[in-house]
Nucleic acid binder design. Sequence first.
DNA 1: CTGTTAGCGCATTCAT
DNA 2: ATGAATGCGCTAACAG
Lengths: 339, 339
Amino acid sequence: MNIKQVAKKARVSTATVSRIINDSSLVSPETARRVWRTIRQLNYHPDSQARSLVSGRSRILGLIISDITNPFFPELVKGFENLALQNHYEVILNNTNYDPARMATCVRRLLERRAEGVAIMTSEMDPELTDELAKRGIPIVFLDVGSVRNRISNIRVDYAQGIREAVDHLITGGHRRIGFISGPMSLKSACTRKSAFLKCWRAYGFAEDNGLIVEGNHKIDGGESAMSRLLQLKPRPTAILASNDLSAIGALGAIRLAGLRIPEDISVIGFDDIDFGQFTHPPLATIRLSRTELGGKAFNALYRILHGDSKKGEEYNVETHFVARESTGPAPQPGRQTQ
Amino acid sequence: MNIKQVAKKARVSTATVSRIINDSSLVSPETARRVWRTIRQLNYHPDSQARSLVSGRSRILGLIISDITNPFFPELVKGFENLALQNHYEVILNNTNYDPARMATCVRRLLERRAEGVAIMTSEMDPELTDELAKRGIPIVFLDVGSVRNRISNIRVDYAQGIREAVDHLITGGHRRIGFISGPMSLKSACTRKSAFLKCWRAYGFAEDNGLIVEGNHKIDGGESAMSRLLQLKPRPTAILASNDLSAIGALGAIRLAGLRIPEDISVIGFDDIDFGQFTHPPLATIRLSRTELGGKAFNALYRILHGDSKKGEEYNVETHFVARESTGPAPQPGRQTQ
DNA sequence: CTGTTAGCGCATTCAT
DNA sequence: ATGAATGCGCTAACAG
């Protein structure tokens, strides 16, 4: 079932059918109606591959993430995909599983599919691969990677704002010993978050105490073990900030396991605001980062380069904000500390 | 950068280059080497659209799910995508958001992309759309939809086994009043799970008590409100089976809110075995359904139709099993029931 | 307003 | 073992 058959059945040329499919304005309403009828009748669906080939526009976007089972990503994907769908783009989703080789494979395949733009939402990116894309003029949008260049945009997450709000909240509550559970230092995004915390902490004029900073793995079990290490400290921290909610949830478990109360003995704050945070015990205070917004902005960044006036890349900003919930409270009195 | 330029630079014909890309056996090793070198040098990537057009094979598979932010799906997607990647297929992922109109859009677009197969992992499917695909001979795999036909396979989840194990466990513990929190009855998959429970319950010779069956929404809040309704019953159930883990987690919250203990006062069992279940308080007993396996089997089902000997559809089976964790215990003695 | 024609990038005959 | 020529389904000039 191709355009020729439709043309024959409707007694017009293929060009007319093509016009009707794409831009019915240049064709008489009557023939248009007739042809549309034949199209429906024959259940004709134009071949996008052929259209892409001749038009040079694939209407495919690549979306590269590290791992869809990481609760950070599903909302991002949904936000991106919704807009893509509305604008008649297809999305090819790729999990790299933090594997550079797999990332390379994905990029090569997106190249072969002639993707019109690529959103790279994981910071572990080989610059050589970026060049591959850039050389061909394919728009790219990064997440928290600084290089805005021609046809390369970047979404910057303002971690500082949310962290400042959270630390403010803790300090107001009398906390002075704040532990930090970081993500794996092999991940650039985890480093960024840690630096943002340290910077904020120093801005308050506090000395930075490396003993209070423990590395987790951005998963629940890593948060648990990181927290149990923090609990060894004497005096132990009165509050914990975690690099993501999963780590914080692990921390909740470790604290409870040690027989301590939240927030009476220790306050805990997460990061990201994943859905589950509302349902932990106690509900987890966190720093919200809207991943839906992130996904949406990633799409828009590509769209602006593809269709906007400015072919140059732009910098986008996503805010973060503290969300108070029951996992934080005032610092315990030093004398009354148990154990 | 196309095949012609490579051919010119390597002083061969385009046919030779094409042969080398696809099937280097019919070409002299020496020219092959030379051409490969040029290909790398020019950084040539064959255009999949053009290849698809002439070969009639798009190497695209559609994966239709209802909502990627539902924790049921990410692992399924990952399992499917991993195999697809290995076998050089591209995956176009579509969230329908439970919207039939959106489902129709997705199917139409997959048709236009000439997808070679479609995995429909949500039961809310208009039969008309299925026909659209079937008419064109596009392989389909469904999840828990009974119609194995030509080029249409089905993955059947054996809910009964896991439910039987769970109910066995409860009955052995002395439980006789077991509440069931179902999913939304507007979803076919939720109905299937509920029927499986009822069937199992009757198989034990117990009467079915509609008061013990309450409808949730497969999310945490729905589980909470369903549970609080169940807590009104006198005598109240001593154990709860939920249609998915999210509902069960909501139930945990409602039970604790009512001042009752888990599992001393009420036992709770979920369904699916999502990662979070291990970290709730107490850890959630559940009925495991491997979504990774599900995604993998979905891919294999399509692959078998595309490349296997049997072009007819097949029935696949995925088992479910009870996973004991601390949210269950023996039934409380009737006399000692609080409140 | 509509038809004719060329060619997008590639795989595949059919020759040689 | 290699090359020349054809056409996949469609859009875009150009012509009328």
